[in-house]
Design a binder for these strands. Structure first.
Lengths: 230, 230
DNA sequence: TCTATTTGTGTAAAATCAACACAAAGTAAG
DNA sequence: CTTACTTTGTGTTGATTTTACACAAATAGA
């Protein structure tokens, strides 16, 4: 048998979006050397547990949430001392959720669970800052070539919501007319016949929804989602 | 201490290209249950060894090569029984090399090391077929938005070499003139003043080389490499 | 010297992208 | 109820980019 004494963990970078702000979920440690400090949700995997299940379990346990989108981000195992107790290799996951769908609750070994605006995240434990950085890059680039923005919004949304999400996350101005034209040209966003009055003043807007079946169908026909503007 | 009994390995999908054919490197097992069958180069990591070093070490040991390009592809740990001896999680790496630069030699625990055309790879052990499939997708998509094709070619190459590489890997026809125009417009490929006579008949062509410093500089200025044709 | 092969080059039509302004429908305040 | 303010909804034009396409130059081999 191989002499190897390394532990495996999973961690998740969970993004949420609300009213022009991008958030990341962090957990405050209750126990251990890093007690009270903030880290990403995650933990050790069980012996017979698939990686993906481990992430979902930890998110449930530590924050009480189930995400809309989940994919592997990368594995952190080059820094042999990233955990100073013993060697831990961590598989990081990238996740998206609509914060409105859940009330955060820190159950088991977490003291607290909280959404931090991406620019106001406290110094995180381990190498979790690096993970957030990488995940943030992934989010920005993926937003341009895959319709993942919808996983951050309500099922029905105003066009301005979608547009603001893109502006916020990509940190750039977008021409409102060109944006709408392009999104609609794909045919993967359909207009509902509901009209919603906004709290603030202004003309009420129609609600739209993402047509996922249509998107999947288009994918088979070699469709390429792509939102990029000057 | 955590009760966890899982081993960690690395595996590499190494692509090579030569004269219109894309190759993948495989290793024939000498020992164990899978003796004589083909697998990807790889193996268990050492207790104090960064992941990336483990890959490089295995490639050196098992095939005698050092690659031009290496990046993490993904971690395979959802199938708990992907290795039937005990649970092994494998971090797969994506690598590119110019086959001409090395003579394959299977040293240590490998019986043989060989290049297989991508369409003629024998059934591989473990879940290595899945890894190859994923790596192949990555290669195809990455080729369009990052100048990694050069890592498969000689330092100096004919324009037709580059063009054939793209045609071969992307499996599509490309207009010769438009391709050259676009590549040259980036300014990251420079013309040497060497002219080379081809073995076969035909007008001799100029040799070109990839200007990596220039590319890195352009990256800072928000340059986006992108080769896609109808 | 004639044929076959490969390199090297420009242009015109079509499609896409970028920039831009004003009317319609509502709210809030006086 | 009128006015000011806010937000939604919509088309066109010029600039840029992409596509499609053909022929001359240089060599090898017969």
């Amino acid at each position: 048998m191989i002499d190897q004494n390394i532990k495996i963990a999973v961690d998740a970078i969970v993004f949420g979006y609300e009213k022009g702000t991008l958030y990341v979920l962090a957990i405050q440690q209750r126990f251990g050397k890093l007690a009270d400090s903030w880290v990403l949700p995650g933990g050790f995997i069980l012996n017979d547990e698939p990686l993906i299940n481990a992430v979902e379990r930890e998110l449930k346990e530590e924050a009480g949430i189930a995400v809309n989108y989940l994919e592997q981000l990368g594995t952190f195992g080059d820094n042999v001392n990233r955990d100073d107790r013993f060697r831990v290799i961590s598989v990081a996951y990238f996740a998206l959720v609509n914060p409105k769908n859940f009330v955060l609750k820190a159950d088991t070994d977490a003291k607290d669970a909280k959404w931090f605006p991406i620019n106001e995240i406290p110094k995180l434990g381990f190498d979790h800052d690096d993970m957030v950085k990488l995940a943030h890059q992934r989010l920005k680039s993926k937003l341009t070539y895959q319709p993942i923005g919808f996983d951050l919004l309500d099922a029905e949304f105003l066009f301005s919501d979608l547009e603001n999400l893109y502006c916020t996350i990509l940190e750039q101005d977008i021409d409102r007319r060109n944006f709408r034209k392009k999104i609609l040209s794909f045919g993967i966003v359909k207009e509902t016949n509901k009209v919603v009055k906004i709290g603030v003043s202004g003309r009420p807007g129609k609600l739209f929804s993402f047509d996922k079946p249509k998107y999947n169908q288009l994918l088979k026909e070699n469709f390429q989602f792509d939102i990029r503007f000057a």
